[in-house]
Design a binder for these strands. Structure first.
Lengths: 137, 137
DNA sequence: CCGAATCCTGCTCGATACTG
DNA sequence: CAGTATCGAGCAGGATTCGG
């Protein structure tokens, strides 16, 4: 009873799923859904970081993916890249204003995940029990 | 100055990027980031739908992906599947309570996307102008 | 009408090695 | 330290076909 699901379509309708396939929101969703983007933004949300610091902080990320992720974020104006002409070179990354706002969105994602995780885990358990051998994934 | 990015790490830290690789939040992010999941949930947020209706409403989705997406949502307890034993069979899908709450999250995503889309488009344009030939993606 | 099964392809990502 | 370049494996996802 508490939850009503009415106004989402109001927001999405002008460029919603029902209409033309590409509406710009997809680009954003792809980024948020990206494994590494979220982690990088969270790290940078804590404080400005250097390349190597990020790589060490984010477990399992490869040089390549860190580079790509940072480039995309930079391109989208969510991260600032600063090069210090020292030897060897030092490069620092920090969130921009837009990046900081992205941070709020990620917080919403995290809150939702934490709130729903138990319910979803239970639902999965129940489903898997009811459908043995039927591996969805 | 309006935007502070402090408490995100507070939320994510207990199972954050800095720590162990898998913390459950990733599962959720993967779903939200999924191309079709969001569209399906938005459609179902408007109203209960049948399989064929969904396929016609969501432009470009294949049978296969619609099936897979719905199965995952069902498994996670976000969608209820109801079979009417008519001939031929009719199957209806509707959001559960949890699914409706997911709807709120998606609204947050959509709001953010709309709010930032112009800034990001401009940033990209600027970046691409400054880095010609350097295709990030 | 709903969906499972099979095949096939392109793209993403990881590993590795090399520059400034 | 901070990247770029290249190659190869794995998997997501489209097309197609068949079953209930």
């Amino acid at each position: 009873m508490s939850v009503t699901h009415t106004d989402v379509t109001a927001t999405l309708d002008p460029c919603g799923a029902s209409d033309h396939p590409d509406c710009g929101i997809r680009d954003m969703l792809d980024r948020v859904g990206d494994t590494w983007t979220v982690m990088v933004v969270v790290e940078l949300g804590a404080s400005e970081r250097r390349f190597g610091e990020l790589q060490r902080a984010i477990d399992g990320i490869s040089q390549r993916m860190l580079t790509l992720t940072l480039r995309r974020l930079e391109r989208d104006g969510l991260v600032n890249r600063t090069v210090f002409p020292t030897v060897p070179a030092q490069v620092s990354y920090a969130l921009t204003e837009s990046g900081a706002r992205l941070t709020h969105l990620i917080k919403a994602l995290a809150d939702w995940s934490l709130a729903e995780r138990d319910a979803i885990a239970a639902a999965r358990q129940h489903y898997d029990d009811a459908h043995p051998g039927h591996a969805i994934r």
